[in-house]
């Protein structure tokens, strides 16, 4: 039932990585190499240009950049964790409910959250709750909820019903069925959703700068406003590298946490 409801609302969900595929192997080694190449190229480019002007020097120094990177990763990770803490239990509760309507409504709302442009979400929230870090986190959470929610529901719904019936038939209580059978089997799909949410989170966090929540968005905005392409480029490349690296790390975690035998 939930499967159908899930399909009615949105047909695609983030797929778990395929351990065996050649694509996966390439990605496992390719991602860190790509990141190193991009950052190395960026540094070469910046040093080869000679002395930065005053504005560039404001942004393009290690202390400032490291502080912004730190802010950015913190807000992204924190939001992604809040997303997981909300969306996974919510997905579990929804997949318990026999009614398709519940799951359709919740997924619909989450869809709206995600389909709304991120800037819109952030500005709406800022107008309501004021600017600042907490508001930015709230926006990121609203934005990242859908993939984790959808994948939790899909991950549980895709389990062969004969497996859960066998578990019940052996006298497992409902919570035992959930924790010993359903969640372990749904882990790869749930983590795939979490990865998607994490990458969204890094991207959307660049917009947090508009409501004073810091992050690498600030670097990008400085570059744009004061027409310093080098600064803009630096901000953009570093954000992309963070997204790639977090996705890569989450992929490794996904592999490590995937139950054996599945």
């Amino acid at each position: 039932m939930t499967v159908q409801a899930t399909e009615n609302v949105s047909t695609s969900y983030s797929q778990p990585s395929d351990r065996r595929g050649g694509f996966y192997t390439a990605k496992r080694f390719g991602t860190p190499l790509l990141v190193i190449a991009a950052l190395g190229g960026l540094l070469l480019f910046l040093y080869s240009r000679g002395e930065p002007d005053k504005i560039e020097a404001f942004a393009l120094n290690w202390d400032y950049m490291l502080a912004k990177i730190d802010e950015h990763i913190r807000i992204s990770l924190f939001s992604a964790i809040v997303v997981a803490l909300i969306a996974i239990p919510m997905g579990i509760v929804i997949s318990r409910s026999k009614s398709r309507i519940v799951s359709a409504v919740v997924l619909g709302l989450a869809n709206v959250g995600q389909a709304t442009p991120a800037v819109g979400v952030i500005i709406l929230l800022a107008l309501t709750f004021g600017i600042g870090w907490a508001t930015a986190v709230a926006a990121l959470v609203i934005y990242g909820l859908l993939p984790v929610l959808r994948n939790t529901i899909t991950g549980i719904a895709q389990i062969d019903p004969n497996i859960t019936e066998a578990a019940r038939g052996m006298g497992m209580r409902p919570l035992q069925v959930l924790f010993k059978i359903e969640l372990p089997l749904a882990v790869p799909v749930i983590l795939a959703g979490f990865r998607t949410a994490l990458v969204f989170s890094v991207g959307v966090a660049t917009i947090a700068t508009f409501i004073n929540a810091g992050g690498l968005g600030e670097v990008i905005v400085v570059g744009l406003k004061l027409t310093r392409p080098a600064v803009l480029l630096t901000g953009a490349i570093v954000v992309s590298c963070i997204a790639l690296l977090l996705d890569w790390l989450a992929g490794l975690a996904e592999d490590a946490l995937r139950p054996k035998g599945v």
């Binding site: 062969d160 004969n162 497996i163 019936e165 066998a166 578990a167 038939g169 059978i181 372990p184 089997l185 139950p259 054996k260 035998g261 599945v262």
Partner: peptide
């Protein structure tokens, strides 16, 4: 049961 339903993990 016919479908066996062993726990794959």
């Amino acid at each position: 049961i016919q479908q066996i339903g062993l726990f794959p993990h």
